[in-house]
């Protein structure tokens, strides 16, 4: 069915066209003056490298692997996120580890390799939902750029440090020694 377009009848004042032009010029002039008088920091434009946008709540940005206060990883390598991932971008290899410390309770498993291919990831947040330990979060950082594809294949340590600078936390690495854990109370049942 054809759509009937109603022809707009303009009044003689509108058909003069010139007053409308002047009105439009006045509007643009108002915008011009307003922009000229607003300091740069208060304009709508966010001048990117210097100014960054504050992302809204619930934004799903880069992942962070959460850690305990002493810096040990929360992840227990349960593979739930890997299974949940629709883009199949998570690769986990688990390792046994005997050096139990207090904060990690009595778990004996941790990821040896935890890789997320940031180029394949679709930032759906399924891994975050699947995680039983609340160990993987999608937070607000959105800056992801590199010169080659390989460096966007984030490993375990990269993922633990994604937000280290933003949060002002120490950058973790393999060489970092965990602080000496307090003596454990083994509760024998």
């Amino acid at each position: 069915m054809a759509i009937l377009v109603k022809k707009v009848q303009l009044s003689w004042w509108d058909r003069l066209y010139f007053p409308a032009v002047l009105k439009g010029m006045w509007v643009t002039f108002g915008h011009f003056i307003r922009q000229l008088l607003t300091p740069t920091s208060k304009r709508f434009t966010i001048q990117y490298p210097e100014m960054k946008k504050e992302m809204p709540e619930g934004y799903r940005g880069l992942h962070e692997l959460k850690q305990f206060e002493d810096g040990s990883i929360k992840c227990v390598a349960c593979f739930m996120c890997q299974e949940a991932c629709p883009a199949r971008c998570i690769t986990i290899e688990a390792e046994e580890f005997s050096d139990l410390n207090f904060t990690q309770g009595y778990e004996e498993k941790r990821p040896k390799i935890f890789k997320i291919d940031m180029l394949r990831c679709i930032y759906c947040g399924m891994c975050e939902e699947a995680c039983p330990k609340d160990a993987i979060w999608l937070r607000k950082d959105y800056e992801l750029a590199a010169y080659d594809r390989l460096s966007l294949n984030y490993g375990k340590w990269d993922l633990m440090n994604t937000y280290a600078v933003t949060d002002g936390k120490p950058v973790q690495s393999e060489d970092n020694e965990l602080p000496p854990s307090p003596p454990r109370n083994f509760v024998t049942m």
Binding site: T28, H31, F32, R34, Q35, L36, T40, R43, F44, T45, Q47
Partner: peptide, 10 residues
């Protein structure tokens, strides 16, 4: 620059 100002850009 003028067009930017008129269109609320920088």
């Amino acid at each position: 620059r003028g067009s930017a100002m008129i269109q609320d850009r920088i």
